[in-house]
Nucleic acid binder design. Structure first.
Lengths: 248, 248
DNA sequence: AAAATTCTTTGACCCAGATCAAGTGCGCGA
DNA sequence: TCGCGCACTTGATCTGGGTCAAAGAATTTT
């Protein structure tokens, strides 16, 4: 009976179509069951704000479908995106009261949330989950620092190429159909959102995308559907030597 | 006897003149004693590299005295500083093999290190320490994202002012002698290092510092010793609404 | 289907900050 | 005391990306 439960519970918690990154492969059935007890779903429409910076945040959770962004805004309206949340990404700051950023749905969004207090209690009792959370936070820290290099030292063209490589790498739809080095995916962001991520204006984003298209680095079907014939070439354009494990 | 040990061990581990941020106020004597067993000191001269990006890193630790930086470098030499390590700051990535960044001593530096394997083992057994590490990593993540706003959206003058507020807030020497809103501290970085932190050139850094001096926001004694007559004014110049708990 | 709204592209011009190039001043070893 | 080197400053000029403006393309509303 115990054995049966252990087997029937996979790492995917319950009915979520994603693998919760807060849950590790070593987590066992009773931990997953406790997670089931405190979880619930929330849906948002494109453009809706999930939570405002400074607001009390009484949940943590993962993106199930859709895209959300973390942004910071100055009083005069300048905004900087500091994080991009794709399906399976974790949101929330265990041990912290409020949100440090605005979290905004840029597409229709479904999140799988866990009530924060019981989640923290579960974390206290479950070293696996606490460890997994530290892992994830270290990953986010690496990503943030990588992005500091992009923001501080790369040219507009390199910035665009860097963003495209990140989206390409994370996009689920491409795992199958790549005829050797080529990639196809959809841009989940408007030109303005890309600009806010890259520290540019939307006009510059548009111009640089046109330039990459003109130079054959990418091609576009419509405004959002991107084809990358040679991913290695895109990496070069990004000024990025590492391939992030996608090639070779 | 147990009680005596608990009392005699303060949060400061052994003979370190700093409070290790990896150690929390709730840690008890036996945990601290195990830390004592695996700790050792390392000294570096100004300019020396503590560890290269990608190298195997078999320790974690805290800065005791001096300043170190975390930097990323592109193949063509463009450099971005992604972290500034002041006394008590933690270095190291529990659970990770190598260093993701170059760590460089910018002044003479003393670090208190713990051998990584036993530290990780201690972490496994000691939820306090694992929790403290998650706290610290979340702090670093907040700092990195705050810096993304600086890099992506602030002007050169605002960038300089932002850096000065950060250094001023962390500088130990000023806790005492502030005649109401004023601050005195030493710049621990060369103009070039500041430029690498801010995504600017050293010439622009120099010019903007001169401009802030001309406008009475700061004054300099020598090249490095800074006086800020009105910290609130400096915060305005940084485009920063929050005071980070230093005022009011 | 026409109209309104939103997203995107492209052009013309401008400016903050980069680049190139001298200097200045201080500390340190001979 | 000299002079060498390094950190810093300042000037002149250039340019990548911002700003302002206008006009497509999509999508939604009426």
């Amino acid at each position: 009976m115990l054995n049966e439960k252990t087997v029937s519970h996979s790492v995917e918690c319950g009915d979520c179509p994603i693998r919760h990154r807060a849950v590790c492969a070593r987590c066992e059935s009773d931990e997953l069951e406790r997670l089931e007890e405190i979880k619930y779903y929330r849906s948002f429409e494109a453009g809706q704000t999930v939570i405002w910076s400074g607001d009390r945040m009484d949940f943590v959770g993962s993106v199930v479908t859709g895209i959300a962004t973390l942004t910071q805004t100055m009083e005069d309206g300048r905004t900087q995106m500091v994080g991009l949340l794709l399906p399976s990404d974790f949101v929330g700051r265990p041990g912290r009261e409020g949100s440090a950023y605005d979290v905004v749905a840029t597409t229709d969004l479904v999140m799988c949330c866990f009530r924060k207090k019981p989640f923290e209690a579960l974390m206290e009792r479950t070293p696996h989950i606490a460890h997994r959370l530290l892992e994830m936070t270290l990953d986010e820290l690496d990503a943030a620092r990588e992005w500091m290099l992009v923001l501080g030292r790369k040219t507009a063209r390199e910035k665009i190429a860097s963003l495209l490589t990140i989206i390409a790498r994370r996009d689920a739809s491409l795992k199958l159909q790549t005829p050797k080095g080529s990639m196809v995916f959809d841009l989940p962001l408007t030109r303005e959102a890309m600009a806010d991520y890259l520290g540019l204006t939307l006009e510059t984003v548009s111009r640089q995308i046109s330039a990459l298209k003109r130079d054959g680095v990418i091609s576009l079907q419509g405004k959002r559907h991107v084809t990358v014939p040679d991913f290695g070439r895109l990496l070069e354009e990004a000024g990025d030597d590492s391939d992030g494990g996608m090639l070779a």
